[in-house]
Simulated assay, not measured.
Amino acid sequence: MAFSVLVTGANRGIGLELTRRLVSQSGTDQAKHVFATCRNTGDCKDLDDIKEKHDNLHILELDVTDEASYPRLVKQVEQVVKGDGLNLLINNAGFANNQPLHELTSEQMRHMYDVNCIAPIMLTKAFLPLLRAGSHANPDLSGEIMCWKRAAVVNINSRMGSIADNGMGKFYAYRASKAAQNAVTRSLGIDLRPERILVVSVDPGWVQTRMGGPNGKISPEESARRIVSTLSKLGPEHTSTYMDNLGEPLPW
């Protein structure tokens, strides 16, 4: 059974560790192709090191805010997967800052929204033909089954995307963009359910990355391990939901 994955923002942090784990899995969870995107393929040594050991890794260039480049990216993936399609799209690329209210600008709000909300939905739209192909390419996954090996879109979100869980304020642009991404996830899951494409929003946890800072509670490696384990257990009842990295539901 062919199983192909694309991870955006894969040159560091959570995206890098997701890529590392996905290319190295064995048995029924082994991916035939893992596509890892980064903004500059000439400066992604960690990905290059992984590729030396795993020939199922394909490193592709992508700035998620450059929508004009999406058709080229889709074509590159299609040339590799052919009729098997794409099974799992992980929209991981993101941006965060914490400008205080008196310094916040509309430009900062727009940029955060572009990266964290518009890019995931437009990239999903661009890859929809390949996700549809992936959904129908595996005869072993018959009936109404929805799972990550058939076709799934995973939006890496944040607990800060929860309006109900916001008890400390601040992070205006980031919170708003991630809450908007959650709204997109909810609608996509409803609209794509008839095509058996599962859509979920996942909080990776407070991770020790450049974005999460050194005080994060878990390492990128642990976050990736939990996320992949959780994704492997998802079914139709999980589509259009918002969860933590262990699969526990989060309040919208």
Rank of each mutant, 00 (worst) to 15 (best):
residue 51 K to V: 00
residue 72 R to Q: 08
residue 185 T to P: 01
residue 10 A to P: 10
residue 109 M to G: 04
residue 141 L to W: 04
residue 1 M to C: 10
residue 246 L to I: 04
residue 117 C to D: 12
residue 223 S to K: 09
residue 207 V to Q: 02
residue 192 L to K: 13
residue 132 R to Y: 06
residue 132 R to T: 10
residue 137 A to I: 09
residue 131 L to T: 00
residue 98 N to P: 00
residue 98 N to T: 07
residue 97 N to C: 00
residue 214 P to K: 08
residue 58 H to Y: 09
residue 243 M to D: 07
residue 171 F to N: 11
residue 183 A to C: 11
residue 61 E to S: 13
residue 22 L to G: 04
residue 213 G to W: 11
residue 64 V to S: 00
residue 108 Q to F: 03
residue 96 A to S: 07
residue 92 N to W: 06
residue 4 S to C: 08
residue 65 T to K: 12
residue 203 D to H: 15
residue 78 E to A: 15
residue 64 V to T: 14
residue 130 L to W: 03
residue 203 D to W: 03
residue 221 E to Q: 14
residue 24 S to W: 03
residue 201 S to P: 04
residue 146 M to A: 06
residue 172 Y to F: 12
residue 77 V to K: 11
residue 248 E to R: 15
residue 131 L to E: 07
residue 230 T to Q: 02
residue 252 W to Y: 13
residue 215 N to M: 14
residue 134 G to R: 07
residue 174 Y to E: 06
residue 59 I to V: 15
residue 126 A to Q: 09
residue 150 R to N: 11
residue 208 Q to F: 02
residue 109 M to F: 13
residue 156 I to F: 03
residue 8 T to V: 07
residue 62 L to I: 11
residue 237 E to P: 00
residue 86 L to A: 06
residue 22 L to Y: 02
residue 50 I to K: 05
residue 68 A to Q: 15
residue 210 R to Q: 05
residue 232 S to M: 09
residue 201 S to E: 05
residue 132 R to H: 15
residue 206 W to I: 08
residue 149 K to L: 09
residue 16 L to P: 03
residue 202 V to T: 03
residue 201 S to Q: 04
residue 161 G to P: 06
residue 19 T to C: 09
residue 153 V to M: 02
residue 222 E to Q: 13
residue 206 W to G: 10
residue 187 S to P: 01
residue 133 A to K: 15
residue 50 I to A: 00
residue 54 H to N: 15
residue 54 H to F: 14
residue 251 P to T: 10
residue 91 N to H: 06
residue 17 E to A: 02
residue 118 I to V: 15
residue 89 L to K: 04
residue 89 L to R: 03
residue 82 K to H: 01
residue 42 G to W: 06
residue 92 N to L: 01
residue 151 A to G: 12
residue 202 V to Y: 10
residue 224 A to Q: 12
residue 118 I to A: 12
residue 166 N to A: 03
residue 101 L to W: 08
